[in-house]
């Protein structure tokens, strides 16, 4: 449901919500609509932005001359500036840092292969570019995966971006499977596991691969199992990795 197609009734309810004048009956109706169409949240936000533009229409008044000085002096004497990094930003940096470290590790370990096979080089570079491009997207988020059972030392992340049909899987310390077995990624959507691609670990137990996943906003969890069928419809093998979404 985009803004242009929004029925008048819905628009009116959202306006009422932003203005804080919904009746209880209308509030119920809107709550139901929010549950059915979470994308309406954006609409609420846009309309709120519009409302908060109103002060721009106020007549210009000169600021008291001394005010800036007063404020900046208060700031300078009040505290020796202490960095107060935002938690989310810090966490993001940490995550991005560990992804970068993992990439270096994987690319470093694969260096021998890279030198031998130019096509592999190109593929690796492309995948690396993909990951970097995705990391630069502000909507991108990382889902970490932890190993269990035979793969209890395995760890890594899935880089997902809303609107991107593919996600990048970066794993390490994954056991190399015997011939005829595959790792299978499953995306949990509405409690159901949707097959989202197969892969194998390199001889060093690393994985860097792009797989088609359901829309990032719908994915509630990710699971990796070991399968023997090349295209299973539902998991039949043991679970070896899981997200902590």
């Amino acid at each position: 449901m985009t803004e242009r197609e929004l029925p008048e009734r819905v628009e009116e309810l959202i306006a009422g919500y932003v203005l804080g004048d919904l009746s209880s009956f209308e509030a119920e109706e809107l709550t139901r609509l929010f549950a059915e169409h979470p994308e309406l949240a954006q609409e609420v936000n846009r309309l709120h932005e519009v409302l908060e533009l109103m002060p721009y229409a106020l007549p210009e008044v000169p600021l008291p001359q001394h005010l800036r000085k007063v404020i900046l002096e208060a700031v300078d004497v009040s505290i020796i500036p202490q960095p107060r990094p935002k938690r989310s930003l810090k966490m993001w940096r940490n995550l991005a840092g560990s992804i970068a470290a993992l990439l270096v590790l994987i690319l470093g370990l694969d260096n021998y292969n890279l030198r031998q096979h130019l096509s592999t080089v190109q593929a690796q570079v492309d995948r690396q570019k993909d990951v970097i491009a995705m990391l630069q997207n502000s909507d991108t988020h990382l889902v970490s995966l932890k190993g269990m059972n035979v793969a209890k030392n395995a760890a890594g992340s899935v880089v997902m971006t809303p609107g991107e049909p593919q996600s990048v899987l970066i794993l390490q310390n994954l056991p190399v499977l015997p011939k005829g077995q595959f790792y299978q990624l499953w995306s949990v959507v509405n409690g159901e596991k949707i097959p989202s691609g197969q892969f194998n670990a390199s001889s060093r137990g690393t994985v860097l691969i792009k797989l088609s996943t359901p829309p990032a906003t719908e994915v509630q969890g990710l699971v990796v199992t070991v399968e023997v069928s090349p295209a299973p419809h539902s998991p039949s093998g043991p679970m070896v990795m899981t997200s902590n979404l």
Binding site: L63, R68, L72, P81, K86
Partner: peptide, 19 residues
């Protein structure tokens, strides 16, 4: 501002204080 640079607060002030 998060990093404690007061000049940045000054710029933000120039930009929004009047409003």
């Amino acid at each position: 501002i998060s990093a404690g640079q007061s000049e940045a607060l000054g710029v933000l002030y120039e930009r929004y204080a009047s409003l």
